[in-house]
């Protein structure tokens, strides 16, 4: 069983956090549908928006993958970083097939396989 972690914020504060994010998100979703034609977005902003998903998601994913217990492990220092390897495998599957569930499944199986392999190597007689 997963032990219930202690949250740094009160439940009320978390509800407020959701409302703030939700309000901003609905604003982005609704802005141009509601203001159709009455609001022009500068071309530079429209061009920058194209890079938002790739840049933000990458900045979000990469650090927790390569930092293990506060140490930088690009592919491995001593022990290989099974999370980076499994992540690369999942990325390759996604790239070739464009199938989300397949990529996630293969990534999970790859992680379990690598964990098993590392465990075997570590305790080899």
């Amino acid at each position: 069983m997963i032990p219930t972690p202690v949250l740094a914020m009160s439940e009320a504060a978390i509800w407020l956090l959701f409302l703030a994010i939700g309000a901003l998100t609905l604003t982005f979703r609704a802005a141009l549908i509601v203001l159709a034609g009455r609001l022009a977005i500068p071309p530079l902003i429209l061009r920058a928006l194209r890079f938002v998903p790739s840049a933000v998601l990458s900045a979000l994913i990469v650090p927790p993958l390569v930092f293990y217990q506060g140490q930088l492990h690009l592919l491995g220092q001593g022990w290989l970083n099974e999370r980076v390897l499994a992540g690369i495998i999942a990325a390759a599957v996604m790239w070739r097939t464009k199938r989300v569930l397949l990529a996630i499944s293969v990534g999970m199986v790859a992680l379990w396989g690598l964990q098993f392999l590392i465990y075997q190597l570590q305790y080899m007689p």
């Binding site: 993958l65 999370r83 999942a90 990325a91 989300v100 990529a103 996630i104 990534g107 992680l111 379990w112």
Partner: peptide
């Protein structure tokens, strides 16, 4: 089961098509 890794994988699956 390291199911937290599924979160990272989900992000990767959204990142690649972008």
């Amino acid at each position: 089961w390291s199911l937290d890794f599924a979160i990272s994988l989900n992000f990767i699956a959204v990142l690649i098509p972008s």
